[in-house]
Amino acid sequence: MSSIKFLGAVISLTFLMAVGFISPAVPDTARNDEVIVEAAWARASIGTSRPSAAYLTIRNEGDETDVLTSLKASVSEVAEVHAMTMTDGVARMGPAGAVKLPAGHEVVLKPGGLHVMLMNLKQPLKEGEKFTLTLTFKGAGPIDVSVPVLGIGASGPVQ
């Protein structure tokens, strides 16, 4: 990043902070090099027998494609990206495999699309609590993000 670009980023960030758009202690945003993970949240679970889902946005601000190769959650034995697909009105769900992050793009995991399946929960996900999700990228390496748990009936963080 050129120094002018960097200065520009610092100034705009300071401005945004000053006007209150972003708080300096955003707990659910994490970055490593050029990969940023943000806006993470998960649905509360009923007990531990049912799987739960987590959602987040990954931005690749680098110049090269990166790949999300694996996930690890503190609350479940298994965490993997699944995709929901719709054919003739029938919803199907299955592992999405490694998620590609083209340079300069963002991948949004949201209800009804890609989501992190949290399977074999070690503890119930309770509304208001947080857990740590580690996303490992081929280029950027591991990134820890704090995931707030919202209600079962939540569709995302309240805007």
């Binding site: 649905r43 009923i46 027998s49 049912r50 799987p51 739960s52 889902a53 699944h82 929901m84 919803a91 769900m93 209800p111 009804g112 989501h115 399946m117 949290l118 079962i152 009936g153 939540a154 569709s155």
Partner: peptide, 14 residues
């Protein structure tokens, strides 16, 4: 079904 983590809670929330 209630073991559905994504589309069912989303639809019921909708």
């Amino acid at each position: 079904f209630t073991y559905c983590p994504d589309i069912c809670p989303t639809t019921l929330a909708d």
